[in-house]
Write a protein that binds this DNA or RNA. Structure first.
Lengths: 241, 241
DNA sequence: AATATCTAGATGTATAGACATCTTAGTCTG
DNA sequence: CAGACTAAGATGTCTATACATCTAGATATT
């Protein structure tokens, strides 16, 4: 139930939908219009818009209005690391369709990534990731059993990163690798795509503060529907104008 | 004159000094204390603190207080911005086979990336990149004419990044984007590959210290022969200067 | 001593206004 | 017709207040 959310979050959600269905540069409702539509004071409407400004989804121009931001300004902040966050930055709603979620034995690549032996037990979460309901990627996350045990939430559905946060596990370092290939028949079925389709394969391993592996994940993106972007080097500087 | 700044910016500046002289986890003044010290209403003090929250300099915990944030926002390091450097890290020798190198007019994507108008003159360097003599990628670098003029070296053959360095141009920020698709016939000829081959398309724009675009480059890698990898690390907070 | 309750202080959310500043369009004036 | 002025509408900043919610310590109860 989201109805006990703060009102400004409802407004922000509404704005995100508008952004998702609009083009960069499009004009969005003014503060005054939001006040009227949601029957709130201006500071509350402003708080919602301001939230989207910090997410780089919209831009405000004094005297002119609020506009959909250019799509290309994601931050280096864990962009390739969390599907949910990555979609949110693009103004899309992330969801999941579980494929399987169980204890299995580590294969070669997984064992090497997690620093364990082949055949040792690991917790595997495999699911199709959707953006606004459209299949976008197949994600296979592999967790050491100890880590899986410490996050007791429903692992199949939500955001893994939120679960880490809730369990007090702080992702620190990460290795990432991006490659590309043709999709297999099984992948085509899961993603609802044609036979000769290219997929982007992102593989990453996340470690906590003490360099213990938290998660090894392989994500296969439909190349037609997805690309990686990042801003490299300087971390975002204080919003100077 | 900074005295006609908004007051919340003054308060934010004061807080930044406190953060710079403190350790992560340290407690900062509460809203009420800031109100009293600067003689402003709470919403104004809040606005200042909120600004530092979006800059990841402080964290607020409800019921507890405002604290100096941990300095560990991930940041992409060792990213693949220079082909020569990237190959050297893999123990391979980078070389080039020029395709063309001349003044041309900017197309749509190039103009947008370099912040100029479509049709304005730019310097284009297009070449096949080889690793140990094997074709690895097609690279199309587009430079503003002013930048091309200031690096008088033989542009077709060497490393662009070495030329930048020699001319005193310091690459600073960069935007990068990675996607994938099937190769075209012309690309297959250039890269000496078969008909149904996947290419990784890396597109990046590099800026100097003053955010002037230095270079916009599209590189098409043979997916069978190449993949991107990166280490995402914690780093120091930008406010500590 | 262990537990429950209360309370002060902190941040989170929200209101209803006020004035400042910037942009644009329209109007008046020379 | 060109330039100056005006007004409407947008965002930017700020006030003073109210109540909600969370935390941690003090106090009271059992």
């Amino acid at each position: 139930m989201d109805s006990n959310q703060a009102r400004y979050l409802d407004i922000a959600g509404h704005l995100r939908e508008l952004v998702a269905g609009a083009e960069p540069g499009d004009l969005l409702p003014s503060d005054a219009e939001l006040c009227k539509e949601f029957n709130v004071s201006r500071m509350t409407a402003r708080q919602a818009v301001q939230l989207l400004v910090t997410e780089h989804l919209v831009e405000r121009r004094r005297g002119k209005g609020t506009f959909v931001a250019p799509r290309k300004v994601p931050r280096a902040l864990g962009s390739p690391l969390s599907f949910t966050e990555s979609m949110r930055q693009r103004g899309l709603r992330a969801s999941s369709r579980p494929i399987e979620s169980r204890v299995a034995t580590a294969n070669d690549a997984e064992a090497r990534a997690l620093g364990i032996k082949v055949g040792e037990p690991v917790y595997v979460i495999e699911r199709v990731r959707l953006a606004n309901g459209v299949p976008m990627a197949i994600e296979r996350a592999v967790l050491p059993t100890a880590v899986a045990a410490s996050i007791d939430t429903n692992l199949g559905t939500g955001s893994l990163h939120l679960a880490f946060e809730a369990a007090g596990l702080m992702p620190s370092k990460a290795h990432a690798n991006v490659s590309a290939r043709l999709s297999t028949e099984w992948e085509q079925e899961q993603l609802d795509i044609g036979p000769v389709t290219v997929v982007l394969a992102e593989e990453h391993t996340i470690f906590d503060q003490e360099d213990r592996p938290l998660e090894h994940t392989v994500t296969l993106y439909v190349a037609d529907r997805y690309s990686f972007s990042a801003v490299l080097l300087p971390h975002e500087s204080p919003a100077s104008e």
